[in-house]
Every structure is written in C-alpha cells, then in structure tokens.
Design a protein around this nucleic acid. Structure first.
Lengths: 331, 331
DNA sequence: CTGAAAGCGCTTACAG
DNA sequence: CTGAAAGCGCTTACAG
C-alpha cells in the first residue's frame, strides 16, 4: 500500500513550486524545456497520478460524462454505449453509469440528483425526461443529449432516427408480404419513440387500406402477457410489429408454444437488428436504424457541446435513414 | 443556469454551521430533531445536492467502483454489467467505465493510470492483469476483483466459473453426439479462461479416445480468419467448440457460406448462452455458466470488500456449476 | 517564466 | 450537542 504521490511531492523533488509542476503537467504556456523534463522525470520516478476529483473540484470540469440508461441487456443500448463510451474515453472523458434501477423509463428527480452529485460535464441519456423534469434539466446548466429519442418536444438536443419512417417501412413490408390483420406490441404507451413507430405502422397500413385496430395495440411493460397472446390468437392476427427485437423474440416464443409457426402465414417484425450486432444468423425480420453511425453521431454531438464555444445551442435532430432487413420471421 | 447551492448556503439559511449541516446530512450522531428538520427543510427549499467530488476528496472515499471491460457488445459483459452496476447503485456506489479501447485483453499501466486518477473505492475487472501489473495493482491499495476469471494465478480475488469443467461438458456433448474430428476456436492464446476451456475440451476428448490436434486449435483474435476456415473444411473437421457464442455465430456463418450445414453432421458449440439473455429462440448449443447468479456473486464479493473490516482478505474462488444447453447447432 | 496565496465544497479532528 | 479551523489535492488569479 504505497503512499499517495501528490503534486507536492513532485514539487519537493524538483525544487519547483506546486504551481509550476501543475502548469507543466497541464501543458499551460510558459515553462522552459529544462523544467518540463525535470517534472516529467520526477513524475515518472515517483509514479505520480493526478487526482481528477481534486482537479475537477477546483477547475469546475470533471472530465466525465454521465450515461443514463434503462438496461444494458438490450444490445441496442450496450452496443451503442460501447461505441459512445470508447469515443469519450479517447477524448479524455470517463463515463459514469446511471440506471433508472427499474423504476420507470424516465429521468426523474431522484436520478438527476444522483447524477448531479457527480458533477458530470455532460449527460447522455437513453431515457426521456419526465414531464416535470424538463425545466429542471435545462436549468441545471449541464449539456444534455437525449440519445435515440426525439429532443424536439423537450426543446433539448436529441440524436434520433426517424422512427415514424421506421414504423412505416415495417408496415409496408408486412403488407407487401400479404399480412392483413396486424398488431403492434409496444413497450410503454407514453414513450414517444414507441408511439412514433406505432404511428408509422398505422400510416403504412392505412395507405394500404388496412386498419390498425386499437384493440390490437399492446404495451408489453404495462399489460399482462398471456391475455395479450390469447387475444392475438383468438382474433386471427397474422402479422405483428414489435417495438424491438427482444420483444419480438418473446412474442415469437409464445406464439410457437401456441402452435403457430412464425415465418410463413404469421409474420413478425422487430426493431434494432440486434442479430447483426452479435453476428447471429438472420432469423428475425427487423428495422435497422444504423446503430453504429447513430452512436458515433451521438458521441460527436456531445463532444461538440462539451468543447463548444457557444453557450446556447439550438436543439436539433440528426436523422438517419432506417432500412428493413428481411429475415425468416416473415415470408 | 442556477447558482450552485452549497453547504454554506444551507448553513446561512438555517443559522447553523457548515459543520452541523454536514453532520445532519451524513446522519452522524449528535444533533437535535429540531436541527435536523431545519436542515432538511432548507435543503429541500434550496435544492441542495451534495458534491461527491468534494466529499470524496476530503473523506477518501468516492463511493465509486471502476468497471474494466473489453467490450459491451458481447452480452456476457453487458448482461452481467447491468446486474452488477444496478446492485452497486442500490448500495450508493456509482460505476465508472473503463475500456481497454481495443488495445489488448489485459489491464495495463495506461489503463490503471486512468482508473486510479478517479480514485475509485474498488475495481471490478473483466480483464486479467498484464503479468507486469500484478504487483502494481496489489500495491495500489484498492480492492480488485477479477470477474469471470480465475484470480488464483495472480493471488487476487476472482469470481469465476470452473472453466475446465465447462470445456469438459462441451467436449462430452460433442463426443456423445458422434462428432470425432474436433477443433477449438479460442480468442487469445494467452488468456487463461480461454485455455481452461480448451483444456477441458481436450480432457473430455482424451477420455473418449479422441485427440484435439494442435493444428486444430485456433485463436480468432490472432489469426487470419479465412485460412482457419479453409483448414477446418479441408481437414474434414466435424465438430467445433468456440470460446464464446459470438465466435460460434461468426464461424457458423462462414461454414454455411462454404456449403456446410451446421446442426447435422457438423456440430458447433459455444459458451455463455447469450440467446437466453435476449430471449432468443434456442439455436446454438452452448455452455451456460449461470450468468445471473454469477454477476450477483461478483457484486456481492466487491461489496463485501468495500465494507470489509478486514484489511487483508484471502483470495478465493466462487465456483458455479456450468451446464450444457442443447440447441440445433449440434445433432 | 515562476511562485505564494487563495479557494473549489466538503469532512475530519478537535475544542467547547 | 454545536462550532471554528484545518486540510483533502488540485487549479486559478495574481504578483513579481
């Protein structure tokens, strides 16, 4: 258990002031080559490692980004988090993870409280802000990027795909493949991205003269599962769009337990193309939102804000064109 | 952009000293009910949020745990990280993520340097320490838990499955299903968990009178892919154990491109059972290490160390019995 | 180009 | 039970 080495130790060793040592290490202007070498040698010899907590406290910048997520199990989150966090790290920012701990799909006060206690330079959120938190978050004075969500309703910076479009191409695919009694299985009834996909589906179906019946719109996180499947089977539904791939897999399993064979006369479409992320064989038909580009764009938007000279930035959307990936879960 | 509210503001508002306010908020003994209420009311009114950086600097405990990972794309990492990080959060610890940024599968000095700059209370690592880092890490005085890896060779605390056993049951399965020319596709030739699985396979095969030929042991992160597949095809290999499921999927895809049908006369087995994590249909035969229990055990071991009264703790292994999950990738 | 002093927001150790 | 002082390890702002 070594004693901690501080700037003071380096100062003593080199005969310089703490101040000068700090300036050299932070590459602030004004020091001689000679001083620089002495400092670097001493740091190396003593094994000096800066204390970012102390540095952050004084300077006001912790060089951290908070990442707010729901769960990392869904590869859409983990895949994009992987890309984003590595990009931040390369730029000298570390990521602190905050989950909603299964509370809700929203950023609430409790969550923001624990985030702000860490004084991050920026917040990248996979979660939408709760309605009563929008002002609070904007007033917090910390760059806040909503990732995979539309920022516009909150007048916040969002990086998201055109989800209505995604829902539409899924709907068009189902129609083109001859499915006619379509259901939608979302996550939560009040999460915008979930509703956008639903709306896209509805629009595509309507254009084809098919109705998305209200009784065939479900929210898997809010409703009981068995009755939902019962209803789908009883009503002879023959095509389903699911909010994401994992939901699609859960639903497919249940349908197959009921003797329905998915892929032929019964079609299921998901969202996110997680199979591709894990190099899996393409089984599920799904909508790919271009996750890699998407994640990189999200990281870049945040890095821009972090290094931004502008104090105020307009909210904006980065829109990527989604595309359908055909698998064996639709004919 | 609200002005930051500090303890001092609360002190002024209540007419108490900063000290007393701090004591109330940290629930240290000795204060009256009346004082407590005044403080809490003031904090609520002004929206006080503690600065954990300042707190950590003074107290020596940052209430953070560093998580060192390779990538989050592999669900084995993201699934367990999700469980572990949520458990830490519930106990008041936040997780700071550190990746090797594609450098190597090891914890090297550069990585430890950035970790230590954050002064975490503990380090949970999915990566093994580089050989020359073992002493450094032990001397750092920060509890270090190697997760999913054997700690014994480093005399460190490890939480891992019996990987030799896992390799063995995979080998036994391949033999039982009638495969006779077996290959192993690992990740890195010098990562212990990779070698352990290989050894288990070898033992099982040997017991069945089958040899695991050296020329049929590959390391996908170190060798060129195409020649590897060429060799497998040319030598009429009929069964493969892959170090993990993702490698298995990649290999299966390549084999099928070569016209081989996996699942019948050609068997492939993976490791981790990631399909189950994402509720996917069971296609791949794989070894499940019981990831949920495993992750919970890892978090608990760390939490024990963090709250531990003992200064020195013996290194130990938490061993879980793995089991084989039969899918359609073996007959 | 370098240094002495102040201070970031807390908690600790001590005094009363 | 409460307060005044010191200090965690840095960086800033200023003086020379």
């Amino acid at each position: 258990m070594k004693k901690k080495v501080t700037l003071r130790d380096i100062a003593e060793k080199t005969g310089l002031s703490v101040n000068t040592v700090s300036r050299v290490l932070n590459k602030k202007p004004y020091y001689t080559k000679e001083v620089e070498e002495k400092v670097n040698a001493a740091c190396k010899e003593l094994g000096y490692i800066v204390d970012m907590n102390a540095s952050g406290l004084r300077s006001g910048s912790t060089r951290t980004v908070a990442i707010l997520y729901d769960d990392l199990i869904n590869p859409f989150y983990s895949y994009t988090t992987d890309i984003i966090s590595k990009r931040f790290e390369k730029r000298g920012y570390n990521c602190i993870m905050f989950s909603n701990n299964d509370r809700s799909p929203y950023v609430d006060y409790e969550l923001m409280r624990s985030v702000m206690a860490r004084k991050p330079d920026g917040i990248l959120s996979f979660l939408e802000p709760a309605a009563d938190m929008v002002d609070f978050i904007r007033n917090a004075g910390i760059p806040f990027v909503i990732f995979g969500r539309d920022g516009a309703p909150y007048q916040m910076v969002g990086v998201d795909a055109d989800e209505v479009y995604g829902g539409r191409i899924a709907g068009e695919h189902l129609l083109a493949r001859g499915y006619r009694k379509i259901a939608y299985i979302g996550s939560w009834h009040d999460v915008k991205v979930c509703l956008d996909r639903q709306r896209g589906l509805q629009e595509a179906l309507a254009a084809g003269g098919v109705e998305l019946k209200e009784e065939h719109v479900f929210y898997i996180r809010e409703q009981e599962f068995a009755p939902m499947i019962d209803k789908i089977v009883a009503d002879d539904v023959d095509g389903i769009l699911c909010f994401n791939d994992i939901i699609a897999f859960i639903v497919i399993e249940a349908l197959e337990e009921r003797g329905l064979e998915v892929g032929g006369d019964f079609g299921v479409v998901g969202f996110d193309n997680i199979q591709q992320m894990m190099r899996m064989p393409r089984f599920l038909t799904t909508v790919d939102v271009g996750s890699r580009d998407f994640a990189e764009a999200g990281a870049d938007v945040m890095l821009d804000l972090l290094s931004g000279s502008e104090e105020e930035r307009p909210s904006f959307r980065e829109t990527h064109k989604s595309f359908l990936v055909k698998g064996r879960s639709t004919r």
